[in-house]
Amino acid sequence: MTLTSKPLAVIVLILVFGGILFSSMMGWWATESTKQPVTFSEGEFAGQANPADIRGSYTFGDIANSFDVTPEILAQAFGITEGNPSEFAVKELEVIYLDSGFEIGTASVRLFVAYYTGLPFDTTDQEIYMPQSATDILLAKGNLSPEQVAYLEKYTVTVDASIPAEEPVVDATPAPAVSSSTTSEEFTVKGKTTFGELLSWGVTQEVIEAIIGTSMPDPAMSVKDFASANGLDFESLKPALQSEVDKVKP
């Protein structure tokens, strides 16, 4: 059988677009992420979302839909202080931390989510940098293995989480997991201090709950907002919390 150019052109077009059409009908054609990470197919975590499949196009809200971590915690971990955390796209981190000298981006979020949720994540031969604020939250959560703590100690860089997202300032040297550069000012309980920050400073959830007299709310909630919502006086909670902070701060 001999073919000339015109039948060949027709065949090429039919195969390309017919193939796309067929794959669409079969549900195989996807040009963007479904925002649903693949799940572990076997083992102890079978059926649970795999943090290794988090994509740069995911927002913190998308991640929260698949993993037990709130957008607010993710925003706090990665120093995002402006805008709606749920709408923050992971890939924007790479732009924000572009000048840091370290790649803090999608891989960092994957690692954070894995360590935060206790899901498996392979870091073999990978250099995944983590901002200090993220490491603080992970260490405060207290569910890391010694190997994971050692990995964080090796790849944590100090980040001022109070800097707005558009203007991050990153110290270009890896720092110990708990940075000695943190000032006492940052360990002061203020109206905007969140429960997540208290956890990241080292105050345990049990101690916090003992002071507020009930279960700890969402870590992203500020202590003052919690007090207002529950008819409590923030000024009476503040000294007790500050006292606990003073006990554990470095």
Binding site: I20, W28, W29, A30, E32, S41
Partner: peptide
């Protein structure tokens, strides 16, 4: 691993097959 490399989507695999 059953995963796709970052930024790659299912459509790339379909096109590669075609």
């Amino acid at each position: 691993s059953g995963l796709l490399v970052k930024k790659i989507h299912d459509s790339s695999l379909v096109l590669a097959g075609i």
